[in-house]
Computed example of a mutant assay.
Amino acid sequence: MEWHSWLSGLVGGVLIGLAATWLMVTLGRIAGVSGIIGTLLTARPRGDSAWRLTFLLGLISGPLLLTLAGGGFGNVLGRPGAVIGEPAGGVMLMLLAGLLVGVGTGLGSGCTSGHGVCGLARLSPRSMVATLTFLMTAIMTVFVVRHLIGGGA
């Protein structure tokens, strides 16, 4: 791992923490992305759509601005100049995975940003259980896919 890889992660983590703190301090809201998107898409307008849209535009514009500044999307394939590319398991598997993540955020009443970042920072027992569940599910999924099914890199 090169020094700029961990530095990018550190800077990104600090920015996520600052954004979550700013949202809590200024609006008293949790920076749970699934809740922000879900409420924006399913709830009737309650006068708080502007901050939700602004937050989501910030999530999208950050990587785009980094790319325009010459930062690229990162060396995700282990080759200089490589970008994300096609999903390793195909588009249908990616769509199924996305659907399962959506179901999971509904069952868990939140996502990794709401529970893992904001909930853990508030020492919420519910968020601790949810985050442990997310992590254990991810670990088991990687194990099954890579070692039992044999489909991973």
Rank of each mutant, 00 (worst) to 15 (best):
L100N: 01
L100F: 15
V101K: 08
V101P: 01
V101C: 14
V101A: 15
V101M: 14
G102Y: 06
G102E: 08
V103P: 05
V103I: 12
V103G: 06
V103M: 12
G104T: 06
G104W: 06
G104H: 03
G104P: 04
G104L: 05
G104S: 11
T105D: 04
T105G: 02
G106N: 10
G106V: 15
G106M: 12
G106Q: 14
G106A: 14
L107R: 06
L107T: 04
G108S: 09
G108P: 00
G108Q: 07
G108V: 04
S109D: 15
S109N: 15
S109L: 10
S109Q: 15
G110L: 11
G110E: 09
G110H: 08
G110S: 09
G110I: 10
G110Q: 09
C111F: 10
C111I: 06
C111K: 08
T112R: 09
T112N: 15
T112G: 15
T112A: 13
S113I: 13
S113P: 00
S113Q: 10
S113D: 11
S113C: 09
H115V: 12
G116V: 02
G116T: 02
V117M: 13
V117G: 08
V117D: 14
C118A: 10
C118L: 00
C118H: 05
G119A: 11
G119F: 08
L120Y: 01
L120V: 00
L120G: 01
L120W: 03
L120M: 12
A121R: 10
A121I: 05
R122D: 08
L123V: 01
L123M: 09
P125Q: 10
P125N: 09
P125I: 08
P125Y: 10
R126Q: 11
R126S: 06
R126V: 05
R126N: 05
S127H: 04
M128F: 10
M128Q: 07
M128H: 14
M128I: 13
V129S: 12
V129R: 15
V129I: 14
A130I: 15
T131A: 05
T131V: 12
T131R: 08
L132E: 04
L132R: 03
L132A: 14
T133E: 02
T133H: 04
F134G: 01
F134N: 00
F134W: 11
F134C: 07
F134K: 01
F134M: 12
L135G: 07
L135N: 06
